[in-house]
Design a binder for these strands. Structure first.
Lengths: 208, 208
DNA sequence: TCGGTACGTGAATGAAGATTCACGAGATGG
DNA sequence: CCATCTCGTGAATCTTCATTCACGTACCGA
């Protein structure tokens, strides 16, 4: 039963890969399960990709593209800093819930077994978020609204750390459990509430 | 060449396990390399532990014990809140550099391939840090020194998120690369400077 | 319609590594 | 000093995949 791959099939394959990798991690994922899930045969993966690692990296790229789209759709249409921040946080938190697996992929690459790609991947991902935060902080400074003590890069770093953890907390098992322990089930079940608390927290830190 | 395991040998085995797991991750670590590194034979691991997973979990427990010792040695002898915070941060950051591998183990368990242990492990680890932060926040409130808006658990959550990321940044490859990108090489090479910036940041957020 | 090519298929192959187990070296105790 | 038991050893076994490749179907151009 031969079936030619149309142009959407590659996408289907990548998505199957993302689902499997997000669920089991790079090493525990079995190539033939990915093919199964995508409704095609293992061999085809090797027609398009060098090996498992290369395929994994392609899946990472694909999920990053989607994350990037999410981020870019957020920031550009607001003037009020606080509202801007609020929207950013709300959107990212709901994206984390909706596209759980893309964030799991993101988290997966931070793990030890991707060590050899650490530098390369960090550079690739940073280019996404740095853009957003530069813009955000730029606005704030232009408005003379914020009081950052010291190196603004460190400030951006802390901010992104927090935001990243929030996203992981709503997409990865371990961090979700951790959040429940810290904040209680009620809060963990109410992403928007956590987002608002975070905006308040950042508001204070920014001296808003 | 038979050699009886004295009481320190188990420790040696666990430490070898931690080193290997921290370096390669759970799945990529090879059991016989661990035995090699510990100077004994593979078989012995299976005399003491059910299987690879069980051994890994034992290694996690052991590294958590050591992390716990670090945390407990910090907080107890200060009255001034800001100094207390400062010491905590400085100590945790240098611990992250010195006991890199314990933190890598900690990070390893957050990854997808440990999914089935997520809840169990989160509970175990939370019991360590919650104690410290409860104490810290308790002091602050007693002194009427802080102005926490909203649920204090969320505040503790954000605080720990930040601190955890700082520790990962000084111990795990990916996060270290990321920190360099955000903060520049100079800052990444100067843990104490980053720690101080963080204390300032938290100081503002706390309304100190 | 026919010959030839392109490409998906999935069973077969090979490697890697977790786990086992028959062995024998030390310990113990009489 | 011997008999017996304990327990570490590491080569052999057994599984689990990643990767390959001989095959056959669909497509294309003539």
């Amino acid at each position: 039963m031969y079936k030619k791959l149309d142009d959407t099939s590659l996408t289907r394959l990548l998505e199957a890969g993302i689902d499997e990798f997000a669920e089991h991690g790079l090493d525990k994922t079995v190539m033939s399960s990915i093919a199964n899930r995508a409704g095609m045969s293992v061999g085809v993966i090797y027609k398009y990709f060098e090996d498992k690692d290369a395929f994994f990296l392609a899946c990472v790229d694909y999920s990053l593209e989607l994350l990037q789209q999410t981020m870019e759709s957020v920031i550009l249409n607001e003037n009020d800093l606080r509202k801007c921040l609020k929207d950013l946080v709300a959107d990212l938190i709901s994206a984390a819930g909706e596209h759980r697996n893309y964030y799991r992929m993101y988290h997966e690459i931070t793990s030890g077994s991707c060590g050899k790609y650490a530098a390369e991947l960090a550079a690739k991902i940073e280019s996404i978020s740095a853009k957003v935060y530069t813009e955000l902080l730029g606005k704030a400074e232009a408005q003379g609204r914020i009081a950052i003590k010291g190196d603004p890069r460190l400030f951006a770093f802390f901010f992104d750390n927090l935001l990243m953890m929030l996203q992981f907390s709503f997409s990865c098992d371990y961090y979700y459990e951790r959040m429940k322990i810290y904040c209680g089930e009620e809060n963990a079940a109410d992403p928007q509430a956590v987002g608002e608390a975070f905006v308040d927290f950042m508001g204070t830190a920014l001296g808003l």
